[in-house]
Amino acid sequence: MFLSFLYQYRQYLVLGVYVLISVAFMIAKSDRVNVNLKSAAISLISPLQKVVNNVSEASENFWNSIEELKKVKKELVRSREELEKLKGANIEIEELKKENERLKFTLENQKKIEFQTAYAEIIAKDPSNYYSSFIINKGKSQGIKINMPVIAYQGNQKGLVGKIIEVSAGSSKVLPVTGVGSFVGAMMADLRYTGIIKGMGKTSDHVVLEYINKDATINFGDLVVTSGQGGIFPKGIKIGIVLGFQKVKYGLFYKDIKVKPIIDFSQLEDVYVIFKQSEETFYQEGD
């Protein structure tokens, strides 16, 4: 009787069990069990993600190479004509110059980093359209800890990317400065007014610098850097440039400023995790 009742309503029972499990996890959101489970699961999944990433890159490279081949063919015809005009040598010299400059730039970037860092590649991005975290291929076994700052080089500039929020054995999750829930102590590089940079999520092209003195004279294009307050991010790392102002409700003493990040996150492929700075007490071991 009881069994037939269970069998008859099994779809609702299963639904109930799944709903209960989900809600239990959500309620225990700050519980360490939650983090443990996540990092354990990421440890299992990240090797697969690396494989998928490699396969997709390989297939993309294949298609790109076909496109490249077409381009190269055109380029070749054009180059031959040009080569005849210029009697050969000049073009090759130019190409070598460019290659040389690019290699020099990479080498200089490495030298410019004044912190002890670990190079890491992005292996996966958040599947949702709301959150913007991403996973890198370095984890606890490479010495990565929660709250470690992450930076990157783009063009000629070093900029703040974000911080580590989860660590598993061979990979870590990074919360970018643009992400929902990201808060970074910041200041105007020239005027030294301090505030907090708040991430606005994936769909916004800017972050917001909050709590800036209402009387501060700020111009478009002014540079915003980390203030070092809060102890997580080293002082003076570029965050972005002033894009404009934002209306603040009841803003008697402060104004909010729109800031365009220095780093173009859509182009980001590799990052540097900062290991050491003056105070390293804030870094936590991942679970």
Partner: peptide, 17 residues
């Protein structure tokens, strides 16, 4: 999806169920 995302674990599980 919850595991891979920054989102709170359980949110996507409940929504998708």
């Amino acid at each position: 999806e919850d595991i891979l995302s920054q989102s709170l674990i359980g949110v996507n599980a409940l929504t998708k169920t």
